[in-house]
Amino acid sequence: MDFDNLINGLDRATLDGITRGSIYALVALGYTMVYGVMKLINFAHSEVFMVGTWTVLGVYTVLGATSSSGTGMVIGATLLALIAAMLASAGTALAVERIAYRPLRKKGAPALIFLITGIGCSMVLVEVFGQVLKYFFGPPFGRVLVNVPAVLETKTVFTIPGVDLAISNTRILIIVGAIVMMVALDTFVNKSRLGRGVRAVAQDPDTASLMGVNQERVIMLVFVLGGAMAGVAALLFTIQYDSTKFDIGFIIGLKAFTAAVLGGIGNLRGALVGGLFLGIVEVYASAIWDSSWTNVYAFVVLVVVLMFRPTGILGESLGKARA
């Protein structure tokens, strides 16, 4: 127990927690949207995120971008990496839906089977980067940690006076980027015509299809949107941690799902609240006790919240949001 450690570094810990939480929240969106519409935990979503991080690495490698590149190159490479990661992740999510979930939906299989094919897809994707691509192309693929060049150099933009906390450009990008994407998605789901279809299917699939909503198309849309958000998260993750690995998705995915459940699964704003909450709790708890127990804190928080508020902090409401 070391509360002094937390109090002394409270500003720093809060910043770390928000950064971490923003990434969790973006990945959590994919889980929460798919769950809201299909009542299904998409176990392959963690690997959708992982594919995004590799795409970022690929774009940097092709463009030859490094930490010493000029300003134009930095902006160009980062934007291109963002678009490529969003496309690759959305494509992966769509492929998973096509291969693993659609045939089962046609057969009316029970929910358990969807989980199993999701886990199967997740293993296949992990092994594609850990083994198959290594077999054909060699490094950097394989079962090792890979460095992603820090194209965007970390610089202190300003210092918060009083607490003397340095805010760097990468932190701003991650936090602002995550919030902008979430607001955009929230607006899309709540204001646009397609978004109304998503909410309708989440509320009552049968009635929605009677009202002329194409359910299959809504499901595809949800996977694409969730995948694209995971792609954004992947770029932000590589900016913050400068690395990727074939099995990086597992723990991030687990945390992101925990965040989604914490905030109230099926609720977009809940994903943001849950993600930030989880990120901050993890960092605080690690400061007070020991950082080798980080994952344990996350699950203890989950169980405690579920015991006292089974529908999460904000409740479940993709469909029940103001129409």
Partner: peptide, 28 residues
């Protein structure tokens, strides 16, 4: 006892966490 009252889907994630907790505890 606390988790079986919840909906089935949550059980999956809580039990997944339990498996990890046991391993991390044994390691730490």
């Amino acid at each position: 006892a606390p988790t079986l009252r919840l909906r089935g889907d949550y059980l999956a994630i809580v039990t997944l966490g339990f498996g990890e907790i046991i391993r991390i505890t044994a390691r730490n």
